[in-house]
Design a protein around this nucleic acid. Structure first.
Lengths: 99, 99
DNA sequence: CTCATATTTCGGTATTTAGCTAAATATCGA
DNA sequence: TCGATATTTAGCTAAATACCGAAATATGAG
């Protein structure tokens, strides 16, 4: 739980997740959207990976990252629930992910 | 946004929010629930205050902290929305806070 | 005014984090 | 095998964070 929130606390990482919302992208492709060095971005990917928020798929020499929306969703849901904040919309999401 | 997630990234601070969910509590009362020093807790309160997640009400020599649920709610909602995670339950919450 | 109480601020240390460049690793094509 | 490409790892610095004990601040009681 802490790891997810820690990952979300950085704007760069949140933007990475946003980019991956559209489609999976390679590390280099993602890095192209930022001004930081690739090494720095790589560290951000690592944080996201360890939080379980992205999946890394190595294909040849490139690594494609994809968003693991369910992990993000579950974390937010679990946390919000303890505060009585119902996230009813998650149901609709579940349907969508089920197709 | 970053400040809210950063505040939520620490287990102690999340527990403080949980405690405040029941009722407002003074700084000392809150500190009694943790093994860290009061100085350390005070710093945590400061982070929560700066993130807007709690309100501090100074009454005489004691400071009573209370949860600002709407801020937490709005932050989670806004973020979740950008990921297509609808938080329909927030509507019901709004009604509740309206009484 | 003085004392006790509640809380924060100060000064310090240790750990973590974000960033960089340079070097290492791995894979592909010729 | 050699070279090019994609990505990570290593080594470093600067800034931020968490923690402590001690000192400062503010208030209310007497």
């Amino acid at each position: 739980m802490s790891e997810v929130f820690k990952a979300l606390a950085d704007p760069t990482r949140r933007r990475v997740l946003q980019l991956l919302r559209e489609r999976p992208m390679t590390a280099g492709e993602l890095a192209g959207h930022f001004s930081s060095s690739k090494a720095t971005l790589s560290a951000h990917f690592s944080v996201l990976r360890e939080a379980g928020l992205v999946a890394a798929d190595k294909r040849g020499v490139t690594i494609t990252y994809s968003l693991r929306l369910s992990v993000l969703e579950d974390a937010l849901l679990a946390f919000a629930e303890t505060f009585g904040i119902g996230l009813a919309g998650a149901g609709a999401l579940k349907e969508e992910s089920g197709r």
